[in-house]
Nucleic acid binder design. Structure first.
Lengths: 152, 152
DNA sequence: GTAACTGCAAAATATTTGCATCCTT
DNA sequence: AAGGATGCAAATATTTTGCAGTTAC
């Protein structure tokens, strides 16, 4: 429902070879739907939610297929969910060792108040915090909002 | 849909006087619905989502009223939303100067993997992070998950 | 050829809106 | 008494499920 879109920061491995590789590496059969959605994530480094994906892909694909494909990708650790304040799940590519299963997406996400684009700040690591006695941390998420590089 | 429930940490101002005060301070008329929902938040320090509130209150109140009441509370700065990975908005009381309008909810939230209760770690402040050139931070959210004090 | 994937239909769930009625001030 | 708040009905949006047809390997 909002413009959660593109931001190119990193690698430029948007070729079919890599897409196929990623799918095969995760024991997934290579289908058009999966290739298209994965390509979207590779092209638009940053976060996407269901609505944006649906808009980008258009009527070529059933809405249900998008739901199921995203679920499969999350299960395989190809993408991960980013916490949001509104109730729209945002997904982003897992970097690093993520394909292995458990992902190491311990980087900060930035949401721009102006353009609403979510950017993965791959090189900003989430700092450790000291919790009260008795709390055992396993995972942390951090979302910073403000004005991004492009909108300043 | 999940058990996002109670956790008492702080103040014990769960008396009707305070509830009325909060509503009046925010130019809201004092109604049963608002008193009940606000009481819930005061009693159960921690986060609540729509489903939990609906369950706690039962059939005394229309579902629509809960939606509208929560929206009003957010607008007035009485409660704020907590980012989540699933698509359920969680709400928590604003502490400190929050009633003023802009809230200072710069504390860490903890979600227990075992009991699914969200706790406001009021005394754990979100650390500052250094962002890449050009990013202007305005606000930060941090959610840590793991095992909480009660479940360890 | 077989298992897995997809599209379609439909169910289940969640959220929003309009309006008449009731309650707070 | 007047304006806002609530309940009800219904519209809209979102997500899930079942099943039959199709595709990847």
């Amino acid at each position: 429902m909002d413009a959660t879109n593109r931001r190119s920061t990193c690698s430029t491995f948007t070729n079919m070879e890599t897409i196929n590789d990623i799918l095969k590496r995760n024991d997934l059969s290579v289908t058009d739907s999966r290739k298209k959605i994965l390509e979207l994530f590779l092209k638009q480094n940053g976060a996407l939610n269901h609505g944006v994906i649906e808009k980008s892909i258009g009527d070529d694909m059933d809405r249900v297929t998008i739901y199921r494909t995203l679920q499969v990708f999350v299960d395989k650790g190809i993408i991960h969910t980013i916490p949001t304040n509104d109730n729209s799940i945002r997904y982003a590519l897992c970097k690093d060792h993520c394909e292995a299963g458990h992902h190491h997406d311990n980087h900060v996400h930035f949401v721009c108040d102006s353009c609403h684009i979510t950017t993965c700040l791959d090189h900003v690591t989430i700092p450790e915090v000291v919790l009260p006695e008795g709390f055992k941390p396993k995972h942390a998420e951090m979302v910073v909002s403000g004005i991004c590089k492009e909108c300043e």
